[in-house]
Amino acid sequence: MAKIIIEEINRLGHVVSRHAFDQLPVAIGRGYQNDLILSDPFVSPEHIIIRDTEDGWLVEDHGSENGVKFKLHSPASRPDRLTSGDDIILGRTRLRLYSPAHPVVKTLILPTKATLPQIIARPAVAATAVILALAILLLDEQLTAGKNTGIDKLLASTLPTFLFALAWAGVWTFVGRVITHRASFLPHFIAALILLMISMLTATLSEYLTYNLNGEWVATIIEFIIVGVALAGLFFVNLSNSTNISRRSIIISSYSVAWSMLLVALFLQYVNQPEFSASPEYPTELKAPFAKLAASKTPDEFLKDSEKLFITE
């Protein structure tokens, strides 16, 4: 059984290489006679020797030019006696020493459920999303067309939206390729389409609400919340599929980015409102008779309410 395990750690704290030695002392340096050969040019050919003592490992400096530094994980009785888990720094190389009895963290259990990016990238889900998005876009174009429009023109008018979703997914795929060396396009694309559908449906819902409530702010708040959650969901898929950030950080950053974007948009809209408008501003939505859920007033009741608009002294 090995008596000491030496890990080489990079600047980010990740393990670069791991070496197990059956016996001590262990000589470390750049020279080829060493037990552990380092390629760091700031390390001397014969840099240190680690010896076994009764109260820990002793590190002997062999007259190296750059010396040796210690990073102990707990205060030791003697600073030159190291125990399992302590770090030594030679030149620009950081080594961590472990004894074989060093405890390890608990085993992670493999997820039994598929992750969100995996679910939406399933062929059935993906195909359904594409067809639904196309249908919603076409229906919206058709229901707002002012003139008789052929299906070819309707399709053409949905293309820019699809191209935008494709471009968005493309960018995130590239990011994923650079960061995680994996490229998965479909989850990004489907997530973008789902966001698109949610925001279109929410906008429609908001129009119907505005129509029935005779006011805009309730509908705007509901729209704001739904779109905020959906946008955060999109960022969640993008980040979890293209980076190695932990799940918790992904949730925090996707929510904060999505909501701050919406808040900035809301703030800009508020700030850019003209101080004076020469025309009256009122909610102008009109919806088909079936959509009317609110009760009607009599003209007299309505006019009585309208009288409150006049400032009387």
Partner: peptide, 30 residues
Amino acid sequence: SKDEVDNYQCHIDFVEFSGKNWKMSFCSRQ
């Protein structure tokens, strides 16, 4: 201009008359 008049204030609601439903808005500026 804004030195001469205020912004319009509006009241909007559903109104029923002549057996039909209407959306009606009343706006005024001082």
